[in-house]
Every structure is written in C-alpha cells, then in structure tokens.
C-alpha cells in the first residue's frame, strides 16, 4: 500500500507536499532517538511530536510518512521543512493507540 492509498482509506490529512511511496510496517514513538535507532526504511511513523526535529529524523530514518496523531496542531515551520525535503507529513484526529489498531486491521504488520 502506498502513502496516497493510505490517506484515502484512513481519512488522513496530508500537510506537506511529497513523493508517493510504499508503506512497509508501522513504528510508534515520540522519541526521535528511538526512531533513529529502531525504525526501518519505509515504516509509517506515528507520533504526537510536532517539533521540526521530526522532519530531520524522518529523513535520516527514511520512513515513508509521519502521521501526527491526536489531531495535534503542527507548526507551519515543521510543514515547510517537510515539503522542502519531500517528507510526507500527515495528520489524524485519532489517538495513537486507536490509529495503530486500525492500521493493524487494515493488515499492516510490524516490520
């Protein structure tokens, strides 16, 4: 499944401009150090962090997209940097746990 397909199915809101790519597995963390240590290339990263640090982290860990959960407001600065680096920054009103369950039901397994 690609990021664009996921946006349609899960009703996610895209915030940045990005290049579509395949989603492989899910990684949940609000600690950028954990993402850098353990997330895998292509993972969908779920977080409530909105600081611009997440864009560099997403870039370094090569995740397929970052989903900001809980409907948290994302600073414009973070969105701008994400667009600059072609990082898919998405938003969901659901809390992390609930979104994780829905992704599981959709058949996306941990990688």
């Amino acid at each position: 499944m690609t990021v664009q397909e996921l946006i349609k199915i899960m009703g996610l809101t895209p915030l940045s401009t990005f290049e579509d790519r395949e989603v492989k597995g899910v990684f949940i963390s609000d600690m950028v150090s954990d993402v850098m240590t353990a997330a895998k290339s292509g993972n969908l990263w779920l977080t409530i962090q909105t600081h611009k640090s997440i864009v560099s982290t997403a870039n370094l860990a090569d995740v397929s997209a970052v989903v900001i959960t809980g409907g948290k407001k994302v600073p414009q600065e973070t969105i701008d940097i994400a667009s600059k680096y072609n990082i898919a920054l998405l938003s969901s009103p659901l809390p992390t746990y609930t979104l994780a369950i829905k992704l599981h039901e959709l058949g996306i397994e941990a990688e």
């Binding site: 950028v32 611009k52 370094l60």
Partner: peptide, 8 residues
C-alpha cells in the same frame, strides 16, 4: 538545531 527528544 540539534535533533533531540523534544519535551518529554
């Protein structure tokens, strides 16, 4: 900026 764990 430093990449860091913000506001834990």
């Amino acid at each position: 900026g430093f990449i860091h764990d913000v506001g834990l």
